[in-house]
Design a protein around this nucleic acid. Structure first.
Length: 423
RNA sequence: GGAGGAAUGGCAGAGUGGUCGAAUGCGGCAGUCUUGAAAACUGUUGAGGGUCACACCUCCGGGGGUUCGAAUCCCUCUUCCUCCGCCA
């Protein structure tokens, strides 16, 4: 959520920047400013009314104390009108503030200056590419065929017990997945991220805190009986760890990592591109989250990008990095880099990580602040990234590492797996 | 799930209708002293709105009510503690 003060002061530049997202924010902005104006004028009027009524109450108290009950009763009558007025003003204030809040929820984050304009993922800017694309032998298979051939992932079994998009990992497939999780967590810990195990269901406040609500209501599984949401990413519970906090400057940087299953309804996505592991309702992911001083957040973002690069290098997977264009940028993000692994057998790029700086957009909703050097409260910057999303990394490994003898295990994973080939 | 008790500032903990945004202690910050540190002493120290800056307004778990006036009384929700039940 954008800060109202920021909108007041920079409306022109905000509207210009939001054009990169292909939206004309001018009507929203002027509505917000209008409501803000209205809110403040009601507030001022209410304050004056309350001040008057507080003053009278004090006088009445004094009069009763000194035994002048009659004079007090005269004053009492005067308060009746004030009371009525302040009640009405209070109601107006609430409705206006609520309306303002709802409008503010609709405005996405302002893209960073480096974000290119564009309409869709076709306009994302490739900024880095690395790793050799393997030459596979004749008859190389996509991962869903490999999964069947070596009996390591069973999609039909998942359908039986739950439904489409909930695969069952078996034997060496399960072990490889667990190895990846452990390997990612170890790499993250090595880089100074503290491992956290967090709840997989969150309340509504947490959903609003990181921006999934109200924007992406339909994408989360909602447990209605208890009004809880299954997390779509560890970003939600981990970032909300500091909801409402006022940190000291010396608390920065705050670096967390966490492994969680993620649940996404992904309503309405079917077809060839969602086959196998490409898109699931439940998948595993290891996430990194940072809370930073605003002066340092872009350096932190670079560090996160470098960190993910290192992991992919070690796994020896061919990958590229994209700077997302305005049209593809997430609602809450100011700048996002996507990592994609090239899946040779599918002959396409698969998104495996997304690393973003939200600047103060989430912090404003979370009320996550810190005391600056002057002792003033300021919003912190929040960032997060996948390091990494499991299914597509798994798909990439299965497809790129397949040989006639079987699927080789990347060297760094062998100690975690306890075997070096799936055959 | 049943029965009782509780929720106050970073923490501990007073406050049961008016001068309480709230005593006191600890912690934090600044200073005095000291070669430096510690101790001691002095001062300072919640958040939000509003204003050029003041004034002023709101907040004592959340919401609602009584009253001229609520941290204090009433209703309700949530959470925590104790006991019982169930249970990985």
């Amino acid at each position: 959520m954008l800060q109202i003060q920021n909108i007041r002061e920079n409306q022109e530049s905000i509207i210009t920047a939001l054009k990169k997202r292909n939206i004309d924010a001018a009507p929203m902005i002027s509505k917000v400013l209008e409501l803000d104006e209205k809110r403040r004028s009601i507030q001022t009027e209410l304050d004056a009314t309350l001040a008057e009524s507080n003053k009278l109450s004090k006088e009445i108290g004094m009069l009763f104390k000194t035994g002048k009950a009659q004079e007090a009763n005269v004053l009492k009558e005067k308060t009746a009108g004030l009371k009525e007025a302040s009640k009405k003003l209070g109601e107006d204030l609430n409705t206006t503030a609520e309306e303002l809040q709802q409008e503010l929820y609709l405005i996405p984050n302002v893209p960073h200056e480096s974000v290119p304009s564009g309409n869709s993922d076709e306009d994302n800017e490739e900024i880095f590419k690395e790793g050799d694309i393997p030459t596979l032998s004749e008859g190389a298979l996509p991962h869903w065929e490999l999964a069947k051939k070596y009996d390591i992932i069973d999609f039909e079994l998942g359908v039986k017990i739950t439904g489409a998009g909930f695969p069952v990992y078996k034997g060496k497939g399960a072990r490889l997945q667990r190895a990846l999780i452990a390997y990612f967590l170890d790499k993250n810990a090595e880089a100074g991220y503290t491992e956290m195990q967090v709840p997989l269901m969150v309340n509504e406040d947490s959903g609003y805190g990181t921006g999934q609500l109200p924007d992406k209501e339909g994408q989360m599984y909602h447990v209605q009986a208890d009004d809880l949401y299954l997390i779509p990413t560890a970003e939600v519970p981990v970032t909300n760890l500091h909801r409402g906090d006022i940190l000291a400057e010396s608390d920065f940087p705050i670096k967390y990592t966490g492994y969680t299953p993620c649940f996404r309804r992904e309503a309405g996505s079917y077809g060839a591109h969602v086959r196998g592991l490409n898109r699931l309702h439940q998948f595993d992911k290891v996430e990194i989250v940072r809370m930073e001083h605003p002066n340092n957040s872009y350096q932190a973002l670079d560090e996160m990008v470098e960190h993910v690069k290192n992991i992919l290098r070690e796994l020896k997977l061919p990958y590229r990095i994209l700077r997302l264009c305005g049209g593809d940028l997430g609602f809450t993000s100011a700048l996002t880099f996507d990592f994609e692994v090239f899946s040779t057998a599918q002959d396409r790029w698969l998104e495996i990580s997304s690393v973003s700086n939200f600047e103060t957009f989430q912090a404003n909703r979370l009320k996550l602040r810190f005391k600056d050097e002057n002792g003033k409260s300021q919003f912190a910057h929040t960032l997060n990234g996948s390091s990494l999303a499991l299914p597509r990394v798994l798909a990439g490994i299965l497809e790129n590492y397949q040989t006639e003898e079987g699927i080789k295990i990347p060297e760094v994973l062998v100690p975690y797996c306890g075997f070096d080939i799936i055959d």
